[in-house]
Design a protein around this nucleic acid. Structure first.
Lengths: 145, 145
DNA sequence: TATAAAGTCTATAGATTTGGTAGACTATTC
DNA sequence: GAATAGTCTACCAAATCTATAGACTTTATA
């Protein structure tokens, strides 16, 4: 399961993506419309800013806005930012690699082999899931009601 | 990431699967050979027993052994037993379904749509990963060294 | 029938993560 | 200079994870 933090981040990003071009949106509006605790959202947006996905403007007329294209931002990156590795085992991650303490031989581990495959497929799907893709799916779902 | 509990459970099960037919294996042996803290392993094996995957025999000559066929036991079931749902969102699980509090309309949620697909593929792969499959992969890896 | 072997049950506990809250501070606009 | 809006630091309660301790029960067998 992803954390609430990640879920909130995704919701906020999709929200901002839908309003691209409208200029900065204030935290309070995102918080209200997306039903996210205001103070919690603050720290989430700050992280997204540090990661280079968002930019902000202070003072009156300020707020947050997307810095990257909605096609560029995908769920794999967002999930990794907040929850760390997507893989089920530390020994099949790339950036967060760690050996399993109790493992006897990584090279011939059948469990690792399975989880490596699962990770590959998962990341592939999550990389494809950009903000634009999510919005597209939403409108598809609406038109099929 | 899966919990250590789940990882230990999988290791213990694979270990027992490899020694099918040898009669009951004592906890201490599994603990030593698989490098799992003894007391922690006790409770894990007990859970696996309650779930119907293992059976035990008390007293001298006792121990644990598989109750199901190694082809029948798969990673999806084991992971669900200890870590709960495999899905990334509570709204795309089957047995643990829960609505996202902050969600405005589940039916038209593009995020949910993506995560549903991811879950489907993941579960499919994990269901295929039986104990026999894991052991088979291990021997494949060994023969390709 | 003792006794050693082996699983079972209940309780506890430290460490870490999760999901937040409070409040002072800084920058910007009008 | 006052209102607006993001930033930074600190804190905190609850849950989860990873165990450990110890008493208890059952069984085989000498």
């Amino acid at each position: 399961m992803i954390s609430k933090k990640t879920k909130y981040a995704i919701n906020a990003l999709v929200f901002l993506a839908k309003r691209t071009g409208e200029g900065p949106i204030v935290i309070s509006e995102i918080a209200e419309k997306e039903r996210i605790p205001r103070k919690f959202l603050e720290s989430i947006l700050l992280s997204l800013k540090k990661a280079g996905l968002l930019a902000s403007k202070k003072g009156k007329g300020g707020g947050y806005f997307l810095l990257q294209d909605p096609e560029e931002i995908n769920l794999a990156d967002v999930m990794r930012l907040f929850d760390g590795p997507i893989a089920f085992l530390p020994c099949v991650t790339y950036k967060y690699y760690e050996r399993c303490e109790e493992c006897k031989d990584e090279e011939t581990c059948g469990i690792r082999d399975v989880f490596f495959e699962v990770k590959q497929k998962t990341v592939e799907l999550l990389k494809q899931a950009s903000l634009s893709e999510i919005i597209k799916r939403e409108s598809n779902l609406i038109s099929h009601l």
